[in-house]
């Protein structure tokens, strides 16, 4: 059976991974290749690397960064930020990207979606939409202009599918960095209008938010950025908790399958006799 995917979004700004809050504030986290090495080791299902400075600085994608990070990650890598033409997509694929996320260019140059899908296959084309709720309606948000556009999110998503997009990455601007959980209403409406996989983003605080979005909506994947960056084994611990209720992939060596969690989804200490029995346990290194 197809598993729900737990994706990690790595937001890069001027070459540094940052924590994004409401598309306005950015806190530095560290180097992209190190972030990706850890996320990979901890068994994340997919990595979405978004360079938020590329379009703004007019630099286009940072190919060197992608070339380096792709040596550290053996899970699918979606790259976005500053992608505006076919040659850039080709070069990103050569650097090790698997899918390309198009945001700004999808709005202003719809032909790019179709052309990219025709050359690289529609599975390669992820259309990324930033949605903001204005007077009860979801509109497309322009992160460069810092305001919403007069484009309705659901009709745009449907149009993107028709033009050849293989997946929709939908980010809630209202929830971005808020830790309030995914926007369930937004996700349900998107899933109702498109037949391609939907990746939910924006607002995840912990495993419970993933469980909620997977049980209340039909999204294929959900992504978190911020909270994966801040504690050891964040991905496999989160996945162990989600796995108790949702069918996901949990195949890391340290799988925390027998772990117990407190109400804040923090690991509970194991009983003393369990810890004692582990004292002399030899753990064989997994050799591939």
């Amino acid at each position: 059976m197809l598993k729900k995917r737990i994706a990690a979004t790595v937001v890069v700004r001027d070459g540094i991974v940052v924590q994004s809050i409401g598309f306005e504030k950015y806190l530095p986290v560290g180097k992209p290749d190190i972030a990706i090495e850890f996320l990979n080791q901890w068994g994340v299902d997919e990595i979405i690397l978004i360079d938020i400075s590329a379009t703004k600085n007019n630099t286009g994608p940072q190919f060197d960064v992608i070339r380096e990070v792709s040596k550290k990650g053996f899970v699918p890598l979606t790259v976005g930020g500053g992608v505006s033409n076919i040659e850039q997509i080709r070069e990103l694929m050569n650097c090790g990207a698997d899918k390309i996320s198009i945001n700004k260019a999808a709005i202003h140059n719809k032909a790019l979606i179709t052309e990219a899908a025709h050359i690289f296959g529609n599975q390669c084309v992820v259309v990324s939409l930033d949605a903001i709720k204005i007077d009860g309606k979801y509109k497309v948000y322009d992160y460069i202009l810092r305001k919403h556009l007069d484009i309705e999110v659901f009709s745009f998503a449907k149009e993107a599918e028709r033009l050849g997009a293989g997946e929709i990455l939908i980010n809630s601007v209202d929830r971005d960095g808020s830790y309030l959980g995914f926007d369930i209403e937004l996700m349900n409406e998107i899933c109702a209008v498109v037949n391609i996989p939907v990746i939910a983003a924006g607002g995840a605080k912990n495993a419970n938010d993933f469980i909620e979005v997977f049980s209340k909506t039909k999204v294929s994947a959900a992504s978190a950025a911020n909270f994966f960056n801040f504690f050891e084994h964040s991905v496999n611990i989160t996945k162990a908790k989600i796995n108790k209720e949702i069918n996901i992939r949990l195949e890391t060596f340290a799988d925390y399958k027998d772990a117990e969690f407190d109400s804040d989804i923090r690991l509970k200490k194991k009983a003393d006799d369990v810890l004692e029995s582990m004292l002399y346990l030899k753990i064989e290194k997994e050799i591939i």
Partner: peptide, 24 residues
């Protein structure tokens, strides 16, 4: 209708013949 296309993601693979590609 309930199956999205493209088929994207991690799926269980049922292995009919382990040798040589799937011995590990």
């Amino acid at each position: 209708r309930e199956f999205s296309v493209p088929h994207v993601g991690w799926n269980d693979v049922i292995i009919k013949s382990k040798d040589p590609l799937f011995t590990k």
